[in-house]
Design a protein around this nucleic acid. Structure first.
Lengths: 246, 246
DNA sequence: TGATTGCACATTGTCAACAAGAAACAATTT
DNA sequence: AAATTGTTTCTTGTTGACAATGTGCAATCA
């Protein structure tokens, strides 16, 4: 983290755009289940509650639609997506395809700094024993994989990951509450770290196939049994109707 | 094409949104090189020339930014991207990763209708001999691969392809004018069609690795020689400055 | 003459009002 | 009573004006 050179020269000096702030807040609310699947996002309502006009809200909604977190229907507004197991199968099969590339490139470019950052994340995972805030498990899991994508040094690959990340987060947050999907077993990520440290792209690809493949197979099992059931419901909040506090 | 059942019931009854129309027009102009890399897109100017207000233009620009065709800088506006060989390497390496998945799924789900559509595209490719409109070659090439993604029946995969498609188009359009990058050899696509018809996912994956891998290797060669040169310049039009007719 | 500072212009970010379409409800008809 | 139709209300799509920021030129000073 701490870059030595004066932060105020490199950092974005200008206040971040309203639209991104709004989008970030909404994304957080959606992935953590505060806004339930199916719930409608009304522009006026959001604009009011965030003390901003409809313009930025509209852009934020457009961003979230790109991230695959909400569905847009012309003249009918935006709703939080409902993830079925078919959807999750899509997310994870695509994730496997792109993360293979990410791991290959990460292994080829890995630096001591990245490895250190990974170690730190793994240490924090290890520290989380027992039934802690499940959100923390998920956050750390994703943080690790963010590092992989970052180290892969591939702009378009990172953007593709952004397309999936929110939906993965949604799924994991909903899952780890109910049953253990063993999403953040620290030892698995430690294994990934070791393979990356070795610097062998082929081995890294194999490792991620194992890591994600396990979940993917499990998802396919669920899909074939609980046919068409939503895979990521609200944590505990209300259903499609009923205001969830903004 | 011709679906028997009344088209006016199935099709989108409502006029398409202005923003998508604007986006489509701009995308076409960018990928075909009418708008040169580096050229600025001024909201007011575009709004005026398309007889629409700045709102829809702004949304269109946001869409094109998502497609990776333009770069946005806060308070500094939008410019058409300049594709270096490093960029193209990114595009094609990622394309290989996702199209592998597309081919696998396509092979597993292929229908007679899809095969027929592919045959039709291949026939049109075959018909284009000699130095025809190079744009047509590129368009047919992409059309074939669109069919693959369509048949793969995977929403998120298709969206990832949309993220790359415009940049692939930009690159091919710029390339085929100068030297033959053999982008649309009909026989290659005929081979892909045959593999898909056989219905073997593994074979399909291997086939696309060969198909795209060839170009990818060639791109890496170019990158390592013509270091940092733009890979997709304007066809013939003016550079960053100078109005290119709207 | 060269660099720097201040000012005017151009362009984007944001806002508030208007127009068009969709959803919910009530009245009407069979 | 059920279904249909017309009306009202709500929400989004679009527009034009205003505020904030960046850019380039010109005047000023060393």
């Amino acid at each position: 983290m701490g870059v030595a050179t004066s932060d105020f020269l490199s950092g974005p000096a200008l206040p971040p755009a309203m639209s991104t702030l709004v989008a970030d807040r909404l994304r957080e609310m959606i992935t953590r289940g505060v806004l339930a699947p199916g719930e409608r996002l009304k522009e006026t309502e959001l604009a009011e509650s965030m003390s901003v006009s409809r313009g930025p809200v509209r852009e934020a909604i457009s961003i979230l639609e790109r991230d695959g977190l909400i569905e847009l229907q012309r003249h009918r507004g935006a709703r939080v997506i409902t993830l079925t197991y078919d959807d999750i199968e899509e997310v994870y099969s695509l994730r496997l395809a792109i993360e293979r590339l990410a791991m290959e490139r990460c292994a080829a470019r890995i630096t001591a700094e990245t490895l250190a950052a990974m170690d730190e994340v793994i240490a924090r995972m290890k520290a989380l024993t027992g039934p802690h805030e499940s959100g923390d498990h998920v956050a750390l899991d994703l943080e690790f994989h963010d590092l992989v994508y970052e180290a892969a040094d591939h702009t378009r690959l990172r953007r593709s990951w952004e397309l999936l990340r929110g939906q993965v987060s949604m799924f994991l947050n909903a899952r780890t509450d109910r049953e253990d999907f063993r999403s953040s077993a620290w030892s698995e990520h430690a294994e990934l770290r070791e393979v990356l440290a070795a610097g062998d792209p082929a081995a890294a690809a194999t490792a991620i196939e194992k890591h994600i493949g396990w979940t993917l197979r499990r998802i396919r099992q669920m899909r074939d049994t609980d046919l068409d059931q939503p895979a990521a419901g609200p944590l505990s909040g209300p259903g499609p109707e009923g205001k969830t506090g903004l």
